[in-house]
Amino acid sequence: MAMILEVVHPGGARTWHRLGDHPLTIGRGLSNDLILDDPYADARHARIGFDESGAPVIDDLGSVNGLIAHDARLPGRVALQSGAEIRVGRTVLRFRDADEPVPPALVDAIAPSAHRPSAKSASRSRRARWARRVVRWGRTPTGRLLTAATAAAAIALYSWLGSAERSSASSALFAALGFALIIALWAGIWAVASRVTVQRFHFVGHLGVASLVTLQGLAWGIGIEWVSFFFPDAGLSDFLSIAIGLLLLSTLVAGHLSLASGLSRQRQWRAGFIVAGTALLIGGLATLVEEESFSDVPTFSGVVKPVAGEWVPTATVEEFGGVMAALKGQVDEMARP
């Protein structure tokens, strides 16, 4: 029964190797059969071979950090069984059965049909191909730097459009510079964290992640302003803000973790949602406490937008009376001793 060696490299990348009849040496040295990019591995760290009865074993070749399983250092030689998991430095070796069943393939909605593709589905697949290409390009250093530059430009534009001072250009420049400084600091902190966990800085990567989330946040922020302008009464904008806040924050955390940890994608997102959920919960509780506590400063949605009168959905003065009556109910409740 053939055995498969699954190698989980620091950083989370995985490779698979079929174990044959010949021994296999493992280490950082370039003369090895399996070369590890792991500073905690010795030049010649371990060898996979066979014992006298022909059963597969792994030998520690006198390495500094040894072979680790379940957080304990193993003796010099260990017999291998499928399902075993052994750590060499920060690299994990998993031994799996070649006959291990795998789940069926997912149906790819955007894959072209095997039969005559319709014009519609052909264009759809073309678009999908383009989308994939853009995403792939976005992950290159150039793409990430361009994302950061776009975010800075967007911040500058937003600041310029929102400035009613004569020196609007300089305030836009300052906003962009401030953004660049903060995001560089942020990416720097994550880069240092990545260096510790996966031995890679990924500064540009972290810069790209943070910039992308900033861009999305800006777009959503503007979107919500417009929603609350057109529909000030619906709790819609509050609900949207929370949902989008949750999504953006978890995207940010998952994005950074994809560069700074060996977690699977599912776990990155789970961590993202946990962090975002906690932050929102704390924020929500703080808002609740604030609402309960007394303030003589009112909060209201005072956004006005340049929209022709006929495009704005409006209530009648009579309907506004209903708003006033509802407010009376609220303050009467608050005045109750």
């Binding site: 009464d233 009112p298 209201f300 704005v312 309907e319 006033m324 407010l327």
Partner: peptide
């Protein structure tokens, strides 16, 4: 504390954004 309600309101002549705080 204040409680406020906002609506876009149209009277016989023009549309406006109206906020009442109570």
């Amino acid at each position: 504390s204040w409680r406020c309600g906002t609506r876009n309101v149209r009277n016989a002549s023009l549309p406006m954004r109206a906020v009442l705080c109570l």
